[in-house]
Amino acid sequence: MLKFNAAAALLAAGLLAATTAPSFAADAKGDWERPNGASKIRISSCGGALCGKLIWLRDPRNDTQNPDTSKRSRPLLGVQIVQSMKPTGTDGQWKGKVYNAEDGKTYTGFIKLTSANKLKLEGCVMGGLICKGETWSRVK
């Protein structure tokens, strides 16, 4: 007859959770929607990193805030806004650059898959002291 060992069961559950949690980062690839529903971004591999480009805009427009004046007439659709995200080694977090078309600036950025269908994106200034972000939802 087998005896139930609560400590062993908790240890097994903890090991299972520890081995499955980081796998979220590998699943960050796919299509994501911003909380306001104004755009969709496709995250995919790009040279050993993750990148994301705009694949849908509710109100298509040009990149009018870009600091490079030669790019201000280009459509935002197709622009890479998540750039060169590489694993930080911290709990499924990735670090790279984020282009914000609303102000035309590129920030230090972080992404982290918080669940199978939620991706947190942050853009930071001052070496990461001040960050602002939002949580995107996976498009089904």
Rank of each mutant, 00 (worst) to 15 (best):
residue 82 V to Q: 01
residue 92 G to E: 01
residue 56 W to C: 03
residue 28 A to G: 13
residue 49 A to W: 05
residue 82 V to P: 08
residue 132 K to H: 04
residue 96 G to R: 07
residue 45 S to P: 08
residue 69 T to W: 06
residue 59 D to V: 02
residue 35 P to A: 00
residue 40 K to P: 07
residue 44 S to K: 08
residue 6 A to L: 15
residue 94 W to I: 02
residue 107 Y to G: 08
residue 98 V to C: 08
residue 36 N to S: 09
residue 25 A to C: 11
residue 14 G to M: 09
residue 34 R to M: 09
residue 8 A to F: 07
residue 1 M to Q: 12
residue 140 K to P: 15
residue 106 T to W: 05
residue 30 G to Y: 00
residue 114 T to R: 11
residue 9 A to L: 13
residue 26 A to M: 12
residue 122 E to Q: 13
residue 52 G to A: 01
residue 93 Q to L: 12
residue 120 K to H: 14
residue 30 G to I: 02
residue 53 K to V: 00
residue 50 L to G: 03
residue 38 A to W: 02
residue 51 C to E: 06
residue 112 K to V: 05
residue 29 K to E: 14
residue 45 S to T: 12
residue 96 G to S: 05
residue 103 D to F: 00
residue 36 N to L: 06
residue 103 D to S: 03
residue 121 L to K: 01
residue 134 E to L: 12
residue 18 A to G: 12
residue 70 S to F: 03
residue 90 T to V: 15
residue 43 I to K: 01
residue 59 D to N: 15
residue 118 K to S: 14
residue 11 L to H: 10
residue 29 K to F: 04
residue 85 M to W: 11
residue 31 D to N: 13
residue 132 K to S: 07
residue 86 K to H: 14
residue 35 P to T: 01
residue 19 T to P: 04
residue 9 A to N: 06
residue 27 D to C: 05
residue 84 S to Q: 14
residue 16 L to P: 09
residue 98 V to L: 13
residue 8 A to G: 08
residue 70 S to G: 06
residue 12 A to Y: 03
